[in-house]
Design a protein around this nucleic acid. Sequence first.
DNA 1: GTATAACCAAGTAATTTAATAGGAATTAAA
DNA 2: TTTAATTCCTATTAAATTACTTGGTTATAC
Lengths: 160, 160
Amino acid sequence: MKLSTKGRYGLRAVLDLAVHADDEAMALSQIAERQSISMNYLEQLIAKLKKAGIVTSIRGAQGGYKLALPAEEISVGDILRALEGDLSPVDCSLVTSNEGICSNADSCVTKYVWKRISDSINDAVDTIKLSELVAESRKVQAGIGTTDTKAKQTCGNSVK
Amino acid sequence: MKLSTKGRYGLRAVLDLAVHADDEAMALSQIAERQSISMNYLEQLIAKLKKAGIVTSIRGAQGGYKLALPAEEISVGDILRALEGDLSPVDCSLVTSNEGICSNADSCVTKYVWKRISDSINDAVDTIKLSELVAESRKVQAGIGTTDTKAKQTCGNSVK
DNA sequence: GTATAACCAAGTAATTTAATAGGAATTAAA
DNA sequence: TTTAATTCCTATTAAATTACTTGGTTATAC
């Protein structure tokens, strides 16, 4: 139940692009260096983002990438789904037609659980817009450390 | 971002136990057969559930497993965390101390995203009690198919 | 025309997953 | 007191996935 580096690196890369973008295109090599991500690997991630219509590219010298939309119109959900595929906790085929159509009452019932989890994840990520993260990033930039203690709370044994 | 078979099989196994349990202990072989799960594999899963205090065991002939608590007092979250480890979308160490303490503003900011996702997942699973699933399972048993069309809605291309 | 960049496809090492296998310990019942 | 049933425990393994790396080709500003 973990995101891969695709989602983790990819979100950072898009955020980097959003924070540092002016109207010029930004070369991938710059993002890769700032974020300490392998440029070749990042290439594969940005290809997915481009395919999903989140970034656009300009080829050739002085080329690079731009956001395809204003940051207010891009949600974290859009970015993560582009990189990770759907964010459901089980494969879609399992939700619909797993093991025959509800041949077993219990697998039928657990589908409700997967759907509730899926909905809550998608709801969470869809309500976070890239613009919020940009704003937050600029705040952090200018007064380090404020956020870190909060983040630590996630890590107790009792997550609840 | 998928649950493994540990979580999927394990939840079904606990539900099976809850549905079919009387006051006698239930042998794992019966659960394995009813749920079409390898008995040897299920053994490993139930060991985790036992360690987490969700089931108790009785050894020897006529032995088996029982719920350690009434189904109303066991949440799906308890079960899934026992089987899968914590349900955060990133490893905890990443949330607290990844890549130095916020050496990079963007990784610092994305931690908020992981925390929001984590909280929403845990909130979703903690509010579903095993007893609800038992009731639902009995309903399904007696009038197949009502749930299936609903489950299908998860599967469109647009999850939103 | 040359440097700079995006674009593309294949390969690979390491890790994780989903089991399988084989036995030891415990206990109810014959 | 033996036997059968059952939990308990550890090690091994095949397959899949992940996280890259490698080695190019194509487009374009200067």
